[in-house]
């Protein structure tokens, strides 16, 4: 029985899987601090910076390229875009420092940064 199982899955497979899961768990634990500001970048140019801590009422920003971004207290998200797969919308709300989402067909990026001491870009391995 044991040998039969070994044909499908070996201990080394599970060790490799566990190593990646540990890395994923570590990332999940580290992704912590609330974001302070959000940047909207179109074609590598920052077009808008929002202080998320100062937002009281939700509102939307319509960009020139047809993308609409929703801002609410402590969060920013894509709410509409003309692209076919809507991945950017499905990315959901960004709330933590270091998170980002992009609408690639429209070259639009939103990202949340914390205060100056946070270095969000260093998180991507």
């Amino acid at each position: 029985m044991k040998n039969k199982l070994k044909r499908f899955l070996r201990p080394a497979d599970l060790i490799a899987a566990a190593a990646v899961l540990a890395a994923a768990g570590l990332l999940a634990l580290l992704g912590g601090t609330d974001g302070a500001t959000a940047e909207i970048i179109v074609g590598r140019q920052t077009v808008e910076t929002v202080d998320l801590t100062a937002v009281r009422e939700p509102y939307t920003i319509a960009l020139d390229n047809g993308v609409t971004v929703a801002v609410e207290p402590g969060a920013i998200s894509f709410c509409a875009s003309g692209c076919p797969n809507q991945l950017c919308v499905r990315a959901g709300k960004l709330t933590k420092a270091g998170e980002s989402a992009a609408c690639l067909p429209n070259e639009t990026l939103i990202r949340v940064t914390g205060r100056a001491r946070n270095a969000p870009d260093a998180l991507t391995g």
Binding site: K96, E99, A102, L104, E107, L109, R111, P120, D121, T124
Partner: peptide, 9 residues
């Protein structure tokens, strides 16, 4: 593509 390191939540 976006010219910046993306980190997805």
């Amino acid at each position: 593509l976006v010219g910046s390191a993306l980190y997805l939540s």
